[in-house]
Simulated assay, not measured.
Amino acid sequence: MKFKHVVVLTGAGISAESGIRTFRDQNGLWEDHRIEDVATPEGFLRNPDLVYSFYNLRRAQLQDPAVEPNLAHLALAEFEASHTARGGQFTLITQNVDDLHRRAGSRNMIPMHGQLLSALCTRSGLSHPWHGALSASDRCRCCDTPQPLRPDIVWFGEVPYQLDNCFNALATADLFISIGTSGKVYPAAGFLGVAQDAGAMTVELNMEPTREDFDQGYYGPASQVVAEFLNSLEDQAG
Results as ranks from 00 to 15, higher is better:
76 L>G: 11
46 R>K: 10
48 P>L: 02
45 L>T: 06
80 E>K: 06
36 E>N: 09
38 V>Q: 15
82 S>I: 03
55 Y>C: 06
70 N>P: 01
67 V>P: 02
48 P>T: 10
40 T>F: 02
45 L>P: 06
36 E>R: 04
59 R>Y: 00
43 G>W: 05
49 D>M: 01
81 A>D: 10
76 L>W: 06
44 F>P: 05
60 A>D: 01
31 E>F: 10
83 H>E: 03
56 N>G: 03
31 E>H: 15
66 A>N: 12
33 H>C: 11
81 A>M: 05
39 A>K: 08
62 L>G: 11
70 N>D: 07
36 E>T: 12
49 D>W: 02
77 A>I: 11
72 A>R: 04
31 E>Q: 11
64 D>N: 15
33 H>L: 03
43 G>I: 01
79 F>G: 12
71 L>G: 12
74 L>M: 08
61 Q>Y: 04
43 G>D: 04
45 L>E: 13
52 Y>F: 11
86 R>T: 01
67 V>N: 10
82 S>Q: 09
65 P>S: 15
69 P>Y: 15
61 Q>E: 04
40 T>W: 07
33 H>Q: 06
67 V>Y: 10
52 Y>G: 01
64 D>K: 09
30 W>V: 13
59 R>A: 00
40 T>C: 07
56 N>I: 01
61 Q>D: 02
33 H>E: 06
47 N>D: 09
74 L>R: 14
64 D>R: 03
64 D>G: 05
81 A>W: 00
55 Y>T: 11
38 V>G: 09
57 L>Y: 03
65 P>C: 14
55 Y>K: 04
74 L>Y: 09
53 S>P: 00
83 H>G: 03
35 I>Q: 12
80 E>Q: 05
80 E>P: 01
43 G>K: 02
48 P>D: 07
76 L>Y: 08
73 H>L: 02
49 D>L: 02
86 R>C: 00
30 W>R: 12
81 A>F: 01
74 L>D: 09
35 I>K: 11
71 L>K: 14
81 A>S: 13
86 R>E: 00
68 E>Q: 15
53 S>Y: 00
42 E>K: 14
62 L>T: 06
64 D>V: 02
74 L>K: 15
62 L>Y: 08
36 E>K: 09
31 E>A: 12
